[in-house]
Design a binder for these strands. Sequence first.
DNA 1: ATAGCTGCAAATGCTTTGCAAGGCC
DNA 2: GGCCTTGCAAAGCATTTGCAGCTAT
Lengths: 135, 135
Amino acid sequence: MCSTSAIADRLRTAGLRPTRQRLALGALLFGGGRDRHVTAEQLHAEVAARGGRVSLATVYNALNQFTAAGLLREVVVGPGRLYFDTNVGDHHHFYIENEGTLLDIPADRVAIARLPSAPEGMRLERVDVVVRVRR
Amino acid sequence: MCSTSAIADRLRTAGLRPTRQRLALGALLFGGGRDRHVTAEQLHAEVAARGGRVSLATVYNALNQFTAAGLLREVVVGPGRLYFDTNVGDHHHFYIENEGTLLDIPADRVAIARLPSAPEGMRLERVDVVVRVRR
DNA sequence: ATAGCTGCAAATGCTTTGCAAGGCC
DNA sequence: GGCCTTGCAAAGCATTTGCAGCTAT
């Protein structure tokens, strides 16, 4: 269920060539079965720790391409703190400020009532709820 | 109600010396009577447009000091997009993505039901709701 | 007088880009 | 082969910091 070929298929379906680098990153991101929140830096370190050789620029490029393809979602919690979330479904986040850690909050655990409608002529893109906590 | 001396008092109360630079910034931020959302860059340009001379570094420092003193609140909507909000009360935001504009949503226009409690041993800091829209 | 500010420029941190070399179809 | 990718290094932004000189109290 998380073989290399499954990831290759996933990339191909998204219109991305399954190169060695993208497969390595994809395996780390999607191969574990559970959802992840990573920064480019973290992912780069992980690949390196497993003996992979992918430049940081390529990690950034790949993450952006994965995001554009709908395989990932960006989560912004602070200036200069861009996370990529493998959970692209509807959900929200806890952000542990003094650790820099993100935790998913399933969409059905948060109910937003009485959200004002988007201003005149605007299309709603997404609603992000970030619950900031501190240990 | 928005004289220079009122702003000077506000700064003094916050433990900040009412210097020429902080008064100029304070007048732009708090003098208009209505709430504002600005970036350091924008505010710097505004001061310059009125003939004021304040360095960008000082604008950043002042905004951070105002925030620490509870006069402003930071709003993060994207990486490298740090806004300062003169409305320090409980409320949320519309973010118009293709304009880079923020709009306040009064707290009583949004009701968050069933928010999961903070994980074990964590103290809730704040809940940020950003409604991303696009024109 | 003196502790606190300011300005400048340099440093920092994160992310993007340009371009030549390499790899997938 | 041809076009997409990669790697490296350099550029780009937003923000912070170090330090000498200035200023409010």
